[in-house]
Design a protein around this nucleic acid. Sequence first.
DNA 1: ATGAAAGCGCTAACAG
DNA 2: CTGTTAGCGCTTTCAT
Lengths: 293, 293
Amino acid sequence: MGYRPNLRARAFSRGRTHGIGLLYTDDAWIFEGMNTQVVNSLVRALQRSKYHLVFAPIDSSGAWEEIVLGGQIDGCFVFQSLPPEVLTAVRERELPVALLGDNSDPTMSQVVVDDMAGAYAATKHLIGLGHKRILFFVHQTIKPHCSIGERLAGYRSAIDEVGLKRHECMLAPEEDAIDILVRGDNRPTGIVCYCNLEATLIVHAMWQYGISIPANLSIVGFNDLFATKYMTPPLTTVGFDAAKIGELGARLVLQDIATPHAKRQPVVMTVKPKLIVRGSTGPAAVRVAPRTA
Amino acid sequence: MGYRPNLRARAFSRGRTHGIGLLYTDDAWIFEGMNTQVVNSLVRALQRSKYHLVFAPIDSSGAWEEIVLGGQIDGCFVFQSLPPEVLTAVRERELPVALLGDNSDPTMSQVVVDDMAGAYAATKHLIGLGHKRILFFVHQTIKPHCSIGERLAGYRSAIDEVGLKRHECMLAPEEDAIDILVRGDNRPTGIVCYCNLEATLIVHAMWQYGISIPANLSIVGFNDLFATKYMTPPLTTVGFDAAKIGELGARLVLQDIATPHAKRQPVVMTVKPKLIVRGSTGPAAVRVAPRTA
DNA sequence: ATGAAAGCGCTAACAG
DNA sequence: CTGTTAGCGCTTTCAT
């Protein structure tokens, strides 16, 4: 009979807004790559439970404080790492929370990707193709993040296992990597990239140098996206189910909302990545002299 | 002295949540391409004014009704086209609103991109390079959207202006476009793509056929993204300032919120695109026989 | 000027 | 089990 409950009054009376915050800093790039898929699944998973996502970028305006402390949200997601004062505020408010892509605080629920396993599989793939000199490369624009260490560990584990020599180029400009790939007689024939960004940059650079992929250089990346699938050549990459992260994360905080603070238990859920072999990797290269760019 | 106003109580008392809805359907792909930048700027522009974005995907759950009719939001953005009952609800609620990427209702405020000018510039660019057979291509996965017609009109206007023949391949699978590009003696030497998706697909296909770009085929796309900038070759494309769309949109609805319903005036704001010339276009091709894929 | 009080629309506790 | 009422915490109006 046309009656509509007033959601503001209900929120006031019940002490719940049915909003869940998404706390993130600029450098988390939540609107890039796989992250958008995580966010998308977050929105949908929450909507299914009659909740909505409240975006709370942490910036100098301090608007996040209003949101977190003012009772605008019933729980929140912490996207990657955050300034300590934000975590403190969340804790003191006893706000249900799930960390997304951050494992720095074992007392909080979290969902993480098994990056180590992913990088291990990627490196093993190159080793299996006969590559002996394999570079691990992280571009300088990548911000410090736990996955860097995880992926590096996976790479090292595979390399060490077969007694190869490590070649690491960490948080460096791509010029450094190109230098290593193009100069000297002992150039790497394979490269494990931190993510699709490095892969894209390197493919682009090699194209300029006339080094063909995978004939002369094999490349593995991370992240399975439209753009990587249609690179020339299509990128061999470590993919994972990003939507699952959102679903699991939503379940965690919704569960905690329904649980009195005292009986909440931090739980960590892991999503397993898998290697997707495409055209950017092949048997260890017969080397050709690079032409100058 | 540590006092925190309770936002729920304030929302109740004042009758405003400081939330602005983002109404969209699945097929609007708001987490793809330029759209993510629009959304991102929306979030930031609102936060600057102490508002927050409430994502309201229109799905079968009908959750949007609660949000729109239940007073969960003080205004909203309509992202591309929506089912008519949603628009009706928005209108009846007299909710301040701005259309984003949709010009179907002149009685509502809106911000649009001048797609016609963009496509015109793209086509003129190819004409200027001496191309005589220029194809306009929209992939089948693109959903009906006003920009398709606009871009087509821009293409036609440029083509007709110099008396060339139109070649249009609308809402077709890429196989159709490839067919046109690869078979026969009178193949197009230039192609205007609806967006970066078509450009990516075509570049990928031509790579398989051994047709080199831009030597044998020139391609112009739409959207300026990391992925298009680092394509091989880098894509000549029509770019526009997506962040501006969010800023203007936010201004429009915030303004209307501060204005009594009776005195609100629909205003349309246009953002001008510009052609970014990169490596995927060059002088009209000397044709080579395609090798079989 | 400052301070008291009514009211927003719902929920939950309580009385009948 | 149904019907009444107090109360959530702020804003705004009205009296002082």
